[in-house]
Amino acid sequence: MSIMQHNGGSVIAMVGKDCVAIASDLRLGVQSLSITSDFEKIFPVTDRLFVGLPGLATDVTTLREQFRYRVNMYTIKEEREIEPQTFAQLVSSTLYERRFGPYFIEPVMAGMQKTPAGGYAPFIAATDLIGCLNFAKDFVVAGTASEKLFGVAEGLWEPDLEAEDLFETISQTLLNALDRDAFSGWGAVVHVITKDKVITRKLKGRMD
């Protein structure tokens, strides 16, 4: 089995109307042995930006700290919060630094990006483990259930979903994909981000 599947875990992000959502499972395992059901892999970067880090658990911790450090340095130097677009580039270059000895993580980002007009636009992105960026307009997926997530999301997602509908769509997509993946599951967490608030909900899922 590949090192990418060692601890299991999956993340998905979706775009809605003036909102984005990012969600993940809560399992941490070692191969087929499940260890905990409260291993969160999505972390806040700013008030309007989250990053999900599915992959090797030890690298989840390392990269979370690495990103926290670099975002803090950015905030101090620039005297402003980092924008999602900029953060995506930071993630990409951080991973590419380790091009020939990579972190085994495929990050997924979701946030609200400031527009020149002063408003906020939905933003999602994902990269592979060496930092190749993918700015999708609909949804991005990563982790051991990525194929399943692609299939369900392609069937359920539609443009311009309101925040509550987006929550339902991403939750159904995630839950049904997790139930067909042996390495992901054991509960889930969903963050729905709008320009002025973040709603976080924990989902009960199958525990087998």
Binding site: E147, K148, G151, V152, G155, L156, Q172, L175, N176, A177
Partner: peptide, 19 residues
């Protein structure tokens, strides 16, 4: 080839799993 993509969608839409 696309079993992994389709089967969970069917679970949801035919068996109403997680609904």
């Amino acid at each position: 080839a696309a079993m992994a993509l389709v089967q969970p969608f069917l679970d949801n839409q035919i068996y109403f799993k997680n609904q």
